[in-house]
Simulated assay, not measured.
Amino acid sequence: MGSMREIKQRIHATEKTSQITKAMYMVSASKLKKAERAIVRFRPLTRRLGDSVARVIENDRELSHPIIEARPPQHTIYILVSSDRGLAGPYNASVFKAFDAHVRKYHDSPESFTVAALGYKAFSFAKRRGYTLLNDTVIQVRDDISFLDFREITDLFIKDYLSGRCDRVVVFYNKFINTITQRVEADTIMPLDKDALLKDVDDIDDEGPYKRIYHYEPAPDTVLAQLLPMVVVNMLYGMILEAKASEHAARMTAMKNATDNAKDLIKDLRLHYNRARQDAITIELTDIIGGANAVN
Rank of each mutant, 00 (worst) to 15 (best):
G119W: 01
A88S: 13
D160A: 00
H65Y: 12
H75F: 11
F150A: 05
S52W: 01
P44K: 04
T132H: 11
D60R: 11
I145F: 11
R61F: 06
R48K: 09
R129C: 13
S52I: 11
V81K: 06
G119L: 05
G130K: 00
L80E: 09
P110L: 03
Y78G: 02
V138D: 01
T132K: 15
I153S: 06
Y131N: 04
D143P: 08
R85M: 12
F157G: 05
L156E: 10
K105V: 08
V95T: 14
I139E: 08
F150Y: 14
L134R: 07
V141M: 11
Y131M: 05
S163D: 04
H102V: 07
L133I: 08
E152W: 09
P72Y: 06
R151F: 03
G130I: 04
D108S: 14
L49N: 02
V138F: 06
P73V: 15
K105C: 12
F147W: 00
R151E: 08
L118I: 13
F147P: 00
V56D: 04
D155W: 01
R104I: 00
T46G: 02
V56Q: 06
R48C: 08
H65I: 11
S109Y: 03
F147I: 06
N135F: 14
I77K: 04
V56Y: 02
V141G: 01
Y161R: 05
H75G: 10
A54G: 06
A54R: 01
